[in-house]
Design a protein around this nucleic acid. Structure first.
Lengths: 231, 231
DNA sequence: CGCGGCTTTGATGTTCATCAAGTAAAGTGG
DNA sequence: CCACTTTACTTGATGAACATCAAAGCCGCG
């Protein structure tokens, strides 16, 4: 953790495989000297829309949401994502200011590297550049796909989609504590809070899910899949 | 145009500024030898969803739409774009098969370069890599933003948005021949064909636009902007 | 224990898709 | 070039899907 450490912690970081696979030990050591780790508590903002982009950030642990504020002041959630899926904000290479905000949905740890350093690596190391481009492309693809998928669904299909998303992509478990409010779900899938709740109640009534406050258990995964697809 | 030509046409291509700015004359000559130009007539398909990606393609002239087919068989238009905005399909670096189809809305000319050659350049030339990443990021950003913008609008706001998009981004003129059917507009902004038409008729009745078949004239740009924003 | 925020449910009205039926336009084959 | 067919466009009527509003319950926190 310390700059004078003989052994660099970055060398063993799980993230190394994801974007830093093409860096040799010297480069990793250098990365280590340029990086900073920061903790964010649930609810804290990691990036703020409009702020100047000076760092390359990636999520080491935790859970975050990417969102923006519409002209009318409402929040629009773009995606919710786990470590390794979230490599900084997109647009670090296309914009000089953040277009979206990022905040922590669970306590999170973020690695922060000066953007100039990353850009330097990018220019020098073709393999690293390719890896990073691929990663960024995948993230963008995923967001676009998700948004298009949601758009074509009706209300109950969307709620089913969100439940499946948390079960399969985020928690990998049929029972989980949902890290977002009902309103945030609504902002994510583009519908009113009241109707999100109503739909959840319907699912509960039909025995598809069980709800205890923030804890949700998927009882009939299959039925949920069908609703999401047909939606 | 011929591989033995002393003078390479790529050297003077407008596109050179856009993604090939960092290539010297030798590399450009090489590019020239690896590239192919292809014409597509209005309606023809340039890339097909699911097909293997083997080429890097960019639009030299014309107009295209990027779209996919939903599980229920309907078309979902992702974006409509002019030359220089469309650098191949996205996902050339993240997928090995096209996720979306691209077809020509007007007669179009596409430049085709073997993807391997582009990847080679990318690995060797940091400046080129950075330029390409930036370009791809911008395109992705634009699509995501557009999709989010559309999502938050109501029906009439969306139709106003499309009209403004054609006027300002595509044709740069208050009067233009709309290159898409009413149904395609509907697939683009996610609403029914009947309601697109109805809304256009409303705009016509209110004197905001004039419509003569495929030709549309924006009469009251200001009012359209207001409707789009408020939508 | 009481205040404020999140959640839940019902009632109501708006927005929008769908259906149907008709018109215009654009291909198509003789 | 004209009759025929097909496809795109248009409009109205209807109902479904959804947002909004309002009121009440719940839960955590000072």
């Amino acid at each position: 953790m310390n700059k004078t450490d003989k052994y660099c912690v970055c060398a063993n970081c799980d993230f190394r495989e994801v974007v830093f696979a093409h860096l040799d030990d010297v480069a990793i050591q250098e990365l280590c000297n340029h990086k900073d780790e920061m903790s964010f508590r649930k609810g804290e903002i990691i990036n703020r829309e409009g702020e100047k982009i000076t760092n390359f950030k990636y999520l080491k642990s935790g859970l975050v949401k990417l969102y923006r504020r519409t002209s009318s002041g409402e929040e629009q959630v773009i995606t919710i994502t786990r470590p390794f899926e979230f490599v900084s904000n997109m647009s670090i290479f296309s914009e000089d200011r953040y277009k979206y905000s990022v905040s922590a949905l669970e306590d999170s740890v973020v690695c922060i590297v000066k953007l100039d350093f990353i850009k330097g690596l990018f220019l020098k190391n073709g393999g690293f550049a390719m890896g990073l481009l691929t990663k960024i492309s995948k993230i963008n693809d995923k967001i676009i796909n998700q948004t298009l998928d949601i758009r074509q669904k009706n209300l109950i299909g969307r709620v089913a989609f969100v439940l499946l998303y948390f079960t399969k992509e985020i928690y990998n478990s049929l029972i989980f504590d949902i890290p977002v409010s009902r309103k945030e779900i609504a902002d994510y899938i583009g519908m009113s809070t009241a109707n999100v709740i109503r739909t959840l109640s319907d699912f509960k009534r039909e025995g598809i899910i069980k709800v205890f406050g923030k804890t949700i258990e998927i009882v009939d995964l299959n039925k949920l899949e069908i609703i999401s697809k047909r939606g």
